[in-house]
């Protein structure tokens, strides 16, 4: 195990060293963060980095998106990703929990566990608010939305505005699957997130 980690560390050291002088924002998310269907440079994490550069902020953005992942993966992934010592983590997990009808209580527990571990390990963390489309029913969508507010409140961490605001449900801003943003959609997403987090990046 230790040997494996050492091997990977060697492989990864180059990429980590490049960012040594800058602060790192780690976005831990799912297919939206992965930039499913668009080039990495057109996905919102890269666009946020461009904005930071433009505003002369000494930050770099690292996207750790994994398509299909649920909040259940949050804890293990943050443990792994914390090795690169991010200065701030934006937790954007939960969409797949909702899409798969996982109970909001389960999502809440997973998010709490992930955030608690981050805090214990002195990692600054923020949580992204997520919504479900209306077809999941009012009861479920309401509970789902409240989950994020509850988690943020309980852990006393900032809650970032819904990243897909003005994007969800708009065919011109999404891929043919109707779920993932296209290049135009990612620009709006980047704008939404940047507006919400820029105050924490000064």
């Amino acid at each position: 195990m230790i040997r494996n980690f050492l091997l990977l560390s060697i492989l990864l050291s180059a990429s980590i060293n490049v960012f040594a002088s800058k602060k790192t924002l780690l976005i831990l998310g799912d297919s939206l963060t992965e930039g499913y269907g668009v080039a990495q440079s057109a996905a919102f994490p890269a666009l946020i980095e461009e904005k930071l550069k433009k505003d002369s902020l000494n930050w770099t953005v690292k996207a750790a998106g994994s398509s299909g992942s649920t909040t259940a993966s949050g804890l293990e992934r943050i443990k792994w990703l914390s090795k690169s010592k991010p200065d701030l983590v934006l937790l954007l997990l939960g969409s797949n929990d909702g899409l798969r009808g996982i109970k909001p209580e389960t999502t809440e527990k997973n998010l709490n566990d992930t955030i608690a571990w981050a805090k214990e390990n002195k990692l600054e963390i923020m949580l992204g608010q997520l919504h479900m489309p209306p077809n999941y029913g009012k009861d479920y969508t309401k509970k789902f939305e409240e989950t994020f507010k509850k988690v943020a409140k309980k852990n006393k961490i900032p809650l970032v505005d819904f990243l897909l605001k003005d994007v969800a449900g708009k065919s011109d801003l999404n891929l043919p699957d109707g779920i993932h943003p296209n290049e135009k959609g990612h620009k709006v997403v980047a704008e939404n997130i940047y507006k919400s987090i820029s105050k924490y990046l000064k």
Partner: peptide, 11 residues
């Protein structure tokens, strides 16, 4: 059902 409204994901 009132499930399909603006923002719903359907095929």
């Amino acid at each position: 059902t009132e499930l399909l409204a603006e923002g719903s994901t359907s095929r």
